[in-house]
Design a protein around this nucleic acid. Sequence first.
DNA 1: AGTATTTATTGACTTAGGTCAATGCAAGTG
DNA 2: CACTTGCATTGACCTAAGTCAATAAATACT
Lengths: 202, 202
Amino acid sequence: MVETNSTLHLFNNTTGDFRSMIRDIITSDEQKIDRITSCFTKLTPIKRNTIILAKGQVCKHFYFIETGCARTYYITKEGQEKTRLIMFERSPLTVLSSFISQRPTVEYMETLEDTVLYSISQVDFFFLRKEIPEWDQFYLNMLEDAFLFQNQKIEELVTLFAKERYEKLRKETPHFIQRISNKVLATYLDISQETLSRLKSK
Amino acid sequence: MVETNSTLHLFNNTTGDFRSMIRDIITSDEQKIDRITSCFTKLTPIKRNTIILAKGQVCKHFYFIETGCARTYYITKEGQEKTRLIMFERSPLTVLSSFISQRPTVEYMETLEDTVLYSISQVDFFFLRKEIPEWDQFYLNMLEDAFLFQNQKIEELVTLFAKERYEKLRKETPHFIQRISNKVLATYLDISQETLSRLKSK
DNA sequence: AGTATTTATTGACTTAGGTCAATGCAAGTG
DNA sequence: CACTTGCATTGACCTAAGTCAATAAATACT
């Protein structure tokens, strides 16, 4: 990863890559981009299969993934994992329900690969929303995206067979199959690992 | 329903009840409430089981339900209905995915009882958001609510058995059982009508 | 490199819930 | 009020997908 920083600000612990991620997300002047990036901390790399947030905790951070990927999942009372969301590099990552409400989450958040995150606290996040309209707009866009994503997920769960959900994923997001283990992918599609294995070989 | 209007504005086709609904939703001065209510039209009562929006159409309106109730649902390629959302009086009603994106919906919207709606066009709705910060805030709150609702729905679909979903509904929203037919309720819980009938008698 | 621990695959069997069909019941319409 | 149409219930049977178990293959660990 290139460690050049396009600004001259000292004590800015963000990289050029991170600035470009922010620029992808909001259109604003460089000063505001500075202000935003200054609120983020680059975390030390997190090993794969590390739990970032556990059931019962309040989600006090919002992340951007620089490299790697992560998921959020439920554990049923029978002990089964059910993955709701998988996010890759250059994407936001948080347990939005808990982040919004600041109430304990029922989900776990876990890295699926060695992952580098940029982190902002919930307090700073909401402070930035008041301060920078473009950031407020980003929050709104993210919320809309999250709504549309879940809307789609509900539709797929209730209208498609296991086989069809897998085929749709294969066509629309083939990188999921390349990067995510069969085991986790099965929990994402809400089918058993064995059934997924059988679907793949047909 | 009381048809008194607490303002002196002529040509204001909204009722006192409607004003109180808006006041429930946003905190603002009476002038802005006037401005908001003036953008809504009270529709002539709609008979039960009337389709308000069909698959393939773009959702160009946002509604408040004054009396009655309505649902949005998918029809699978096997011809089965799957209800995603049921809304009652004093609640917002729209197919948010299509309303946001202005792209054709895959859902149907239908009244479940004789229903009275207040309607605002998508254009006016977004115009109001620019004009009145409290309305913009309402949109954000609604989006957050909608997100949280779907988040919950996904959790229930993937972590609970049919029986448990029914028991949860019976405890948390008993009015659904009183007002919604077994048939529609079954599609809301994503179980067959026969199975729901059997669950109820145990 | 060699061992230990996951993960993937495959077969045999089970099950939650669905489908189909028949009957009784309630409700809307002329 | 009769009549039709749709809704709820129940029984008999079915099936998509899950579970359990045994290998095999891949990864991680020392």
